[in-house]
Each structure stands twice: as C-alpha cells, then as structure tokens.
Design a protein around this nucleic acid. Structure first.
Lengths: 260, 260
DNA sequence: AACGCCTTTCCGCATCGTGGAAAGCTTTGC
DNA sequence: GCAAAGCTTTCCACGATGCGGAAAGGCGTT
C-alpha cells in the first residue's frame, strides 16, 4: 500500500499511530474521527482499537462510545521514567567526565541510608577503585551521599540522622549531626559536595545531585581520585565539570533543575 | 496460530507484548532474550522492534545492541496523566504527606475494577516500591481501591462484585462480598480505608478518597509502609494526615466534600 | 584462524489483515 | 411514534502482507 514509508509492519505502524492519537488528542475520541485522522478505514480502525484494548493500551468508555489511552500505555511510559532509566543515559556523561578529568567517574543513589555505587567508569591512569559498583557506604561518608542529602529539607536530614546515626569510616568522616548540617549548608551554597578522605584514607571525591522529572534528586554523579592527585587547586575545576555532567543528565532524563 | 487469545490483530498484539517487556524488564534487552520471553521467532521479534523504533516507541542502542522503551511510549503515557486534571495539583500534597509521615505516598484511581497507581512519592528510608506507577491491583486488595468503593452506593458495590468477583492476593485479602460490605461500613464511619497485608505480605496502607466537583470520587491518596513501621498505634495519626491531604486536594480541584 | 553467538537480511508460502458492505444500535427530527 | 441519519460493530472473500527458517554479516573469544 501507499502508507508512506515501507519497512515496518503495516498493522503495527497503524496501531501505534492510533495510540499516539489517543494520547495526544483531546479527551474522548470516537472511532470515526480516529479513522479519519489516521487515514484508515473505519472497520480497520475499530479492529486495531479493539486489539489495543485487549492488551490494555486503550480503554473504551461505553457511555459516549469514546476511546482513551489505557493503563498499560501509562505503565510502559512510567517504566521509562522510573526504571533506573538514568543508568543507561548516564554512561555517556560519565565517560566524558572521566576523559575530561582523567579520574574515575561514578554514578550512585541512596538505598536504605547508604550510598550504592551503580556504575563506574575507571580512570585510565589509576588502578582499582575503592568502591566498586554495587558497593555501599554510609551516606554521610560519601560525596554523592552528602550531595543527595543536601537536597532534602532539614527536618528530613535530622530524621535521617536519628534513624541511621552518623556513621564514620575514617577519622576525617563527619561524626556529628551539627557538623553534617554545617557541611550541608556549604554544599547547597556551592552546588557540589566534597569527600575529603572521609570514606577511605587518601581518597577524595567531588559530587553533584541529579534530579528527576518531579524535581526530586534521584542519583548523584561524582569524580573520585587519590587525594594527592586532586589538590585544593583542582577541586573547583573538577567540581565545575561534575556539576555540568549532573545537569546534563538531569536534562537528559527530563528532570527539573529546581525542587519544590 | 495458537497465540493464546483470538480476536485481536496478531502482529499488533505481539508488538504490544514486546513493548510491555521493554517497559517492564530490566534496562537494555537483547533481541534474542526478548524473542524468548515473548515466545516469538527472532526474525519476527526483530521486525516488530524495528517497526516500534520507526514510530519512536522503542529505541535501539548500538553500543551493546540493546533495546529500550522510546520517547513516544513515554509521551503517550504522559497523556494518560495529563488528561486527569487532579494529578498535577496532587504532587504538592503527596510530597508533604511523604515528608510528614516519612513513608511512601501514593495517588491512584480505578480502571476496569483495578486500582492503578498514578503517582508515587517514595519514602526516603525504604527503597523498592511494591506497586510502582502504572502498577495495578484488584480494587478490593488495596486501601485506595476500598476507599473509592466505599463512596459508591451499596447496589453498585454489589454489581461490582458480580462483575469482577472478589479477587485475593494474600491470605489476608478480603475474600467474600459480606466481608467487603462489613469493611465498607467501617471505612464510611471512619473516613479512611486500611489495607493490612491484603495486597502484599508485610505491607500496610491507609487511604482516603478525593472527590471531584460533582461530588463523585475521582481518585484516592494513600500512605504505604512496611507493616512493622506502621503499627496500630500509628495508623490513626497517619490516617488523619491522609484524610487531610485528600481533603486538601478535593478542595484544590474544586471538589465537593460530601457526595450526593 | 576458526569457532560460537549474536544481529540482521532475504524470500517463498499461506496466513492473516484488509476494507466494503451490511447488520445493530442510538439519537434526532418531524 | 415513526423514519431517517449517523454511528458502532460484525462479517466475509480476496490477496496483500507478515511469517519464520535459513543464510549472511559482525564481533568477541578461544
């Protein structure tokens, strides 16, 4: 047929066109109108819609005989957002970050008060990272953890401390709630968090939070390096790149830069 | 063929199955695996995926040769939410509810006898939601579902049972119509509904209905938490907050507090 | 260099989707 | 209250269209 482009499965292409019309159009569309808009025969349209309904992607409202987007379509779309959809798109930015800084770039999120490293792009210079993917650290001992905490309201942070305590891993780790709150203030002002040998001796990290579509922080990006290679003079430059990566990823996953 | 159910357009049904797999499965799936999961020939799967990609519903990542849900799928799903004018205003109240209770706050509505979770603001303490956005549960196994049913006249509830049956998900789920009617009475008297491990073992929810301008219940708000974290002593306090949130949203969308 | 495992393309066959036509079903006008 | 209009829904014979086995093309591994 002359359905415009070849290559695809006709019936499927048509069904998807209808699905798009259902999602984009005004509320409650009738078979005849949909058929016209899609340029299909009414009977064909009806058959396709019925099929979409059987799969839960379309919904038919008997009162008024109108068609709507179904729950499955929503479920699939929601999966697109929620299903850790930031890991795959993050890879590009992590890699660039690693190449720009020549240090290890990390992606992590919070789980039960701990920071879990989800992915890591290793520095080509230095061997073996301290915290491999899957590794866990108390949130307050990690730059990524602190960057994420800093996006929370103060009351939540206090609650977090009450629940999990303020755990330490090195003599330099944040050890009191007051100290944590002080640091959080700095993090919010600067837009990035620093871990200065608070997780492991000789290791420094710089991190920034990534936000999801609803403005909530979903994960964080960091650069970690041997402290000797990441002096005070270099932190700001690295931080700038980390923030840029975090913002780029925020944008990429349809995130809102500011929270509510 | 013996594709389970007849009536639908084969190619479309199959394509939708793939789409669901893309949305539901782990991120980044290969053709071979998808084919196996869907019970299709590899070549067929590949052709259907290609078609989905042409329409923007699937996305192919050349590095790693993996398939992902596409932007169009998300766009269509978003239409599902946009169409419901109460979703956007609800976010504020959900977030506040989460912050006040430190548990996960949910928004849901009924479709085809099932409760569909529309939005979720996750507890910061606990990860992994049982029922993520897009997820469905039989209405009677859910606090939100029961809260909504309770706003209906008895005759309609009876009809609902006749149509959908009284489905159960755990040994604690409501299993008879009589039991349901008893609970509905309690819900009406108290103003809130409880799901005590009736949907998933170890999970408790407290929900209240939100009404639209015509006094009809349009959606429900709930707080869900691990049962150990939501003891009998805490239910009343949480319920008070859930009801407040539901009333606030009712008011916000110009709803009438009481039914006709 | 040869293997194994995967993606991608090809092609002949018959299955499956197609659209016109006709049958149901409401709503509207008189 | 009846008829006509306009819609949804079902039916069916035809042939275009999607099917899947097989083969070709890539890529990493042994």
């Amino acid at each position: 047929m002359k359905d415009g482009k070849a290559g695809g499965v006709q019936a499927v292409t048509r069904a998807l066109t209808l699905l798009r019309l259902l999602g984009g159009g005004s509320e409650g569309q009738r078979v005849t109108d949909l058929a016209q808009e899609a340029g299909l025969a009414v009977s064909t349209t009806h058959r396709l819609l019925t099929t979409l309904e059987q799969a839960g992607f379309a919904h038919f409202d008997p009162t008024g005989a109108t068609w709507h987007v179904g729950r499955e379509a929503f479920a699939v779309g929601a999966g697109y957002l929620q299903r850790r959809s930031y890991v795959a798109p993050a890879l590009t930015y992590l890699r660039r970050l690693r190449d720009d800084t020549r240090e290890t770039a990390n992606l992590g999120h919070l789980e039960d008060g701990q920071l879990v490293t989800l992915h890591q792009v290793e520095s080509r210079e230095i061997m073996r990272a301290i915290s491999p993917p899957g590794g866990r650290v108390p949130a307050t001992c990690s730059a990524m953890g602190k960057a994420l905490l800093a996006t929370w309201p103060d009351a939540q942070i206090a609650e977090f401390c009450a629940r999990h305590g303020v755990l330490t891993m090195t003599p330099r780790s944040v050890s009191t709630e007051a100290e944590l709150h002080r640091q959080i203030g700095t993090i919010r002002a600067r837009g990035y968090a620093v871990d200065d040998e608070e997780h492991a001796r000789g290791l420094r990290c710089v991190a920034a939070a990534v936000r999801g579509p609803d403005g909530e922080a979903v994960c964080a990006i960091s650069v970690s390096a041997m402290a000797v290679r990441l002096g005070d003079d270099r932190v700001e430059e690295v931080a700038r790149r980390v923030i840029a990566a975090a913002e780029a990823l925020t944008h990429r996953i349809g995130g809102a830069p500011a929270a509510g």
